[in-house]
Simulated assay, not measured.
Amino acid sequence: MDQIIISPSKYVQGEDTIAKIGDYIKPLGQKAAILADSFVTGLVGDTVKKSCADAGIEQRMEEFGGECSRAEIDRLMEIFKAEGSDVVVGIGGGKTLDTAKAIGFYHKIPVVVVPTIASTDAPTSALAVIYTPEGEFSEYLLFPSNPNLVIMDTKIIAGAPVRLLVAGIGDALSTYFEARANGLSGKATMAGGLPTKAAQALAKLCYDTLLADGYKAKVAVENRVSSTAVKNIIEANTLLSGLGFESSGLAAAHAIHNGLTKLEECHHLYHGEKVAFGTLTQMLLENAPMEEIQEVLTLCRSVGLPTNLFDMGVKELDHAKLMEVAEASCAEGETIHNMPFPVTPEMVYAAMLSAHQIGLK
């Protein structure tokens, strides 16, 4: 099997970068389909419109409905197709960006993603997570190429609620551990081959950056200021985690996240908050050293990530429901089968209960 690493064509990170978005879009197209939810439109809509107008780009801004579902993708595709758009721009959170990537794929036009938060590693990937209209995980949609352009405005991201940055830390936390497991199993990564040493190094750098700067970044954003630590965590949550997971592989942590969408009590949680517990569960599943588990627990507690099921909103342990989560985690085609040993629902169930107990404060 070949070794493969994939990435966006261009990644731009800096303060007030969104004010120059027109200049960055211009080489990709002249009629921009811009997708954002109502809050993001109010936050940056005028800036984006002015920048596009100054660059001579026609644009149509449309409101995102809130869920990256097949129905929402189809609705927006019809609107932008009628406009004759030749580049699609997603501005906002992970579901907005995934929807823009899907539209670009089906319309065969360039894709620009502009996160206003650093809560997931979705922006850089050639992947979208499709949900049902009710918010349950449905499927992964894989694309032949990554976004053409990723723009990260650190000033906007630092001004977002701290919980979103922390959720991004939770998502990025899994990168190294899933990459390590996938490397041991020798299974194909999301990039379609074996990991390169570069991709594995990025995954480890992601984890090291979280340990070094995660708490410092949280404190800065709580005070609504940016700092070197904030900028480092934005890069870790987005670029390092994105390239690390995609070209080094997913394993149990994200599959357990997908299983947790079956628990109604967890629907209020962000993606990365569930992934953090999925990472702890994976570590129990693979019998990781207790010292390493404690290191992860310390990081999670310092930034406010959940370390047990009660933290996640579960009132009491319903063992039948937990087994449903475990069974969903082990569904055919799930990334849990990239672990370096066969995994059964019973094993996941046991690991979840153990992770919960160890994670209780």
Rank of each mutant, 00 (worst) to 15 (best):
H107Q: 15
A126G: 14
F64S: 07
P115T: 07
Y349Q: 10
A217C: 01
Y270W: 14
Q13L: 11
E327C: 10
P147W: 07
V40N: 08
V12N: 08
L260V: 02
A172P: 02
A122F: 10
T228D: 10
V221N: 01
A252V: 03
T209H: 00
L35M: 10
G183E: 08
Q282Y: 08
L269G: 07
Q294Y: 12
E139H: 15
F64L: 05
E316Y: 03
N146H: 09
L299N: 05
K187H: 12
F143L: 14
R70K: 12
T120F: 01
I234G: 02
V314Y: 01
L142Q: 11
K321Q: 13
E139S: 08
S7T: 11
K231S: 00
L35V: 10
K101Q: 02
R301G: 01
R70L: 14
V303W: 00
T124N: 06
I73G: 05
A255C: 07
Y106V: 14
C300F: 00
R163E: 05
V162T: 13
F137Q: 05
E62L: 12
I234C: 04
L76M: 03
L284K: 10
V230T: 09
D46I: 03
T99Q: 03
E15K: 15
F245K: 12
A36K: 00
I151N: 06
A199P: 11
